[in-house]
Amino acid sequence: MPRHRKPIAEQWPRHFALAGICLCAAALLTMIFSKQDALAGWLVGLVFWSSLPIGALALVMMMRIIPGAWNDLLAVQGEVAVLLLPLAACAALPILAGLTALYPWSGADAASAFRAIYLTPLSFIGRTALFFLTSGAVAFLLLRMPRPAIFVAPVGLIALVLLDSLIAVDWVMSLDPAFHSSGFGLYILSIQMTMALACLIIARLMPGAEVERVGLLGALLLTALLLWAYFSFMQYFIIWSDNLSPNVAWYQRRGAGLWSLTEYAIGVLQLGPAFLLLFPITRQNRRWLVALSMIVLMGKALETAWLVLPDASGDARISIPAAILAITGLGFLSVAGWRVGSRRNEMRRQSTASDRQVPA
């Protein structure tokens, strides 16, 4: 008897997952040439795509605290994105396994007693594990419990901001142990939330989806971009006004050569959409909003590379291709995981709705 093939709609997640695995393996195989540069490229992919579930978790908790029309528009997409947290945790494993090759402090003598305790591989791994365990627990309480306690969202949001600041310092800022910035964690969180919001808007405005208040989505994206601009500029302004040479050198490395052009590209790809979103004709048009969200994602990918590679990479000929492979591979896996997560989230919502029905 002839075998019945599964519909294409059921096959493409598997194809995406397989392509993602192959691309991620290719990114990690660049360690043959340089372990440090390959891990630097992988870190770019990790920081970029982990922003989706982390930023979405923050947005979902804010929706629970501040109900309104944006909850009806983005709650479902936000819950699906949160389900990608296990993928982000798995993507962090290569960094944890090879952190001695990537972070300069791992093989250097500590400058102070605090650094001797804080900047060690064991504590680094412990903080990363604590972050994902806490985030996973909060996500479970929000999404899996039939009626999560009212304090879960506010307490979880505070815990996420604090732990995410630690992760931002560990994953990115500690690539240069001489660099210090008290606002770096909030700056990274603004990147994560903006990136997550852009992805949720694209998912919400897929062809065939009925959306009544498109302008509200545009206003949310504009708000996120303005918040990002504030945190990024204030950090830059404070560091340069103090004229502290270790911190200024961090910006100088990112303002030389290829990275100076990347700075301008980041500004255009972020502030350009923000400017266009000021106009109702753009903000309320779904095609424009999808296009601008994609442009914002391109800017965030460049910004992630701009944050990581100048300190972590010694040979851009290896780290940049590794970053492209990692971003693309983790992107394919995220899309496949999104499809699986959307099915499970729909089943959970249907089960919850049926449990809440009062029998006649």
Score class of each variant (00 low, 15 high):
residue 196 A to Y: 07
residue 79 E to W: 07
residue 242 D to F: 02
residue 69 A to W: 08
residue 354 S to A: 15
residue 267 G to I: 01
residue 316 A to T: 09
residue 116 A to G: 10
residue 224 A to Y: 04
residue 141 L to D: 04
residue 188 I to G: 07
residue 82 V to N: 12
residue 17 A to D: 02
residue 24 C to T: 15
residue 212 E to G: 01
residue 119 L to D: 11
residue 178 A to P: 01
residue 160 L to F: 12
residue 84 L to K: 14
residue 144 R to F: 11
residue 322 A to Q: 00
residue 96 L to F: 05
residue 249 A to Y: 06
residue 63 M to Y: 06
residue 356 R to Q: 13
residue 175 L to G: 08
residue 217 L to T: 11
residue 20 G to I: 05
residue 82 V to I: 06
residue 351 S to Y: 12
residue 266 I to G: 10
residue 113 A to Y: 01
residue 236 Y to G: 04
residue 83 L to G: 13
residue 288 W to T: 15
residue 152 V to C: 03
residue 89 A to E: 08
residue 115 R to A: 07
residue 50 S to E: 10
residue 65 I to S: 08
residue 183 G to K: 02
residue 227 L to A: 10
residue 27 A to V: 11
residue 131 F to R: 07
residue 223 T to N: 14
residue 171 W to V: 14
residue 318 I to D: 06
residue 82 V to Q: 10
residue 234 M to A: 07
residue 356 R to I: 13
residue 132 F to T: 10
residue 27 A to T: 10
residue 184 F to E: 08
residue 343 R to H: 14
residue 359 P to K: 09
residue 52 L to E: 14
residue 132 F to A: 03
residue 156 G to Q: 04
residue 188 I to F: 03
residue 24 C to E: 15
residue 291 A to E: 04
residue 326 A to G: 07
residue 307 L to N: 13
residue 136 G to K: 03
residue 265 A to N: 08
residue 356 R to A: 15
residue 81 A to Q: 07
residue 67 P to R: 01
residue 142 L to Y: 04
residue 153 A to R: 05
residue 138 V to W: 01
residue 295 I to R: 00
residue 349 R to W: 00
residue 248 V to C: 02
residue 228 W to C: 12
